[in-house]
């Protein structure tokens, strides 16, 4: 998604109100921006807190400011600057974190971001965007620019959307079937594990699959609630800790509506259960959000 992101920024950066700040990252990815944006592309050094504070100052003078680093550094390291300087003042500062979840794999735990959505989505005036597919990146950026308010964009390794393209929303329908028995909701590119599981076993006519790409979630009634009521079986997948993630948000919404389900499972990032490290897929397996486990859950529920 990073290359897609870079190409889109290159296109929209003709608008001289756009500034791009990076915390000393972007080798082999942002050279195009550096060349095109000239003095509006600034490497602010290994100093994330200052980068966010400065972005707030620049935004207060009429700029829209993108702040880029890898997901953990651009969120946790400068959380207070995002909370006070950006969010309290509702400024158009767009926090972009690459490699959300276990995205940086074998780089190790310092480079993973498993609690970023919880931190960012709990801040006032903040909208989180988590593209599931490559097509979602452009749609997210369009919305961020249009809204002109604080945003967090979590990028990962994406594929193309295999479902029907529709208008970009908070909850998006990927597969819908008349005979569906299970509802699956996923956040971010980990949805591809569900798609692989479904397609591998030819289960497409048994599943309603939804992606969540924007938080706070606001369109529960565009099909998700109906599907949950109809199937009574709900599987939620997110490469993020359970606390502060989408499983919590959806559960609270269901409680408020007094909706009960027969089967419920939340697959989330469990951290480092065996205290060992590996690539992104290794950690997904450790947390049970790999396609094999997803497939097992679905078939158990259907039979």
């Amino acid at each position: 998604m990073r290359k897609t992101f870079s190409n889109i920024i290159e296109k929209i950066s003709e608008d001289d109100k756009i500034i791009f700040l990076t915390g000393d990252l972007g080798f082999n990815a942002f050279e195009n921006l550096q060349e095109k944006m000239k003095d509006r592309f600034i490497n602010t050094g290994v100093a994330e807190q200052n980068m966010i504070g400065m972005a707030a100052g620049m935004a207060s003078k009429g700029f829209k400011v993108f702040c880029y680093s890898i997901a953990p550094f651009i969120t946790f390291r400068c959380l207070e600057q995002i909370r006070i300087d950006v969010c309290f003042h509702k400024l158009p500062v767009f926090i972009v974190g690459n490699g959300g979840g276990y995205g940086y794999g074998i780089m190790g735990a310092t480079h993973h971001a498993l609690e970023d959505i919880a931190c960012m989505s709990s801040l006032p005036n903040m909208t989180c965007y988590v593209p599931s597919f490559i097509e979602d990146v452009g749609a997210s950026i369009n919305e961020m620019m249009r809204n002109d308010t604080p945003a967090y964009l979590r990028l990962g390794l994406g594929k193309n959307n295999p479902g029907e393209q529709e208008m970009y929303k908070s909850i998006n329908t990927i597969f819908l079937s008349h005979d569906a028995e299970v509802t699956i909701v996923a956040l971010g590119p980990v949805i591809n594990n569900a798609i692989h599981a479904i397609e591998n076993k030819g289960l497409k006519n048994k599943i309603n699959l939804f992606s969540i790409t924007r938080i706070p979630i606001d369109n529960f009634d565009d099909g998700l609630i109906q599907s949950i009521v109809k199937t009574g079986k709900l599987l939620i997948i997110e490469e993020h800790v359970e606390r502060g993630g989408i499983a919590e948000s959806i559960s609270i919404n269901l409680m408020k509506r007094n909706i009960q389900v027969k089967q419920f499972k939340s697959l989330c990032a469990l951290g480092y259960p065996n205290e060992l490290y590996g690539d992104q897929n290794y950690h997904q397996v450790q947390s049970g959000m790999d396609s094999e486990n997803i497939q097992k859950i679905i078939t158990d529920w259907i039979n």
């Binding site: 807190q49 966010i52 504070g53 400065m54």
Partner: peptide, 21 residues
């Protein structure tokens, strides 16, 4: 123009404003 009280926030903001000018 800014809520301040947590120390160390002002200088980055003012520096950003100076750069914006």
């Amino acid at each position: 123009p800014f809520a301040l009280g947590s120390l160390g926030h002002g200088l980055p903001i003012s520096t950003g404003i100076a750069k914006a000018y």
